[in-house]
């Protein structure tokens, strides 16, 4: 968490950080239940078992995470 402040130089208020984490946690929980697994369940076990659904899910959430991170990076001018 401290890492979010170290790069930008401007400290993120704790209340804002908590809200961001709550919201992203909500998305993680909602999405994980929707697709029936998470990074461990689909990404590790499912891909290892060669389950097609797990491969699709893993490809989707990893590319979405990469896209989201790049978008954040661009929106914040490289601060995040």
């Amino acid at each position: 968490m401290r890492s979010r402040t170290s790069r930008s130089g401007r400290p993120v208020p704790t209340s804002v950080l908590v809200l961001i984490l709550l919201a992203s946690g909500l998305l993680i929980g909602y999405g994980a239940r929707w697709m029936g697994g998470c990074t461990s369940g689909h990404g590790l076990c499912g891909v290892s078992a060669l389950a097609v659904g797990s491969v699709v899910a893993t490809a989707t959430f990893f590319s979405t995470a990469v896209a989201t991170t790049f978008l954040l990076h661009w929106l914040t001018g490289g601060a995040v």
Partner: peptide, 12 residues
């Protein structure tokens, strides 16, 4: 589900 999950994954 992966789309929703991925956004949370990327942000946090």
């Amino acid at each position: 589900g992966g789309l929703v999950f991925g956004v949370g994954f990327g942000v946090s």
